[in-house]
Design a binder for these strands. Sequence first.
DNA 1: GCCAACGTTGGC
DNA 2: GCCAACGTTGGC
Length: 158
Amino acid sequence: MRNYWLVKSEPDVHSFAMHSAKPGGISSWDGVRNYQARNFMRDGMKLGDRVLFWHSNAVPPHLAGICEVVREAYPDHTAQDPSSEYYDPKASPENPRWVMVDLKALVAVQRQVTFDDLRGSALLQQMRLLQRGNRLSVMPVTGDEYDEILRIAETPDP
DNA sequence: GCCAACGTTGGC
DNA sequence: GCCAACGTTGGC
């Protein structure tokens, strides 16, 4: 059974187009430094899961594309790299502390979905993304929400 | 640039 | 283990 997720990225830093431009459209999802988000990646993300790629800090923020999990959680080595902006001195080979997954970009959406679009759908009112003060960068989405969002995006499930 | 919300840190 | 201070996120 397939799970569904949403991840946030600032397009200035790492956009869906940048991700798609990597070899095979595959890039690691590193730098997550929040335990709840990490646990979703570590315990929840499985091969073949679909991942909605959300552009945060964009004007306006929007859904940009759809990815697939092509490698399940493994240690995020950037946590052990002092030159990385994601360096965490408490991470070690014995206790990597943080994990990353590999995501493959599948398709850009036909129509970029905004907060207004999400708020306009009765089926999406429970989304964590719409809850006030939500700052999670990795969060689960239900299958029904996924289907509804793709319908609004005018994009078939890849 | 503002600021609400929330996670983390560290003194006690 | 409490909790105030602080830093960060991210929509607006």
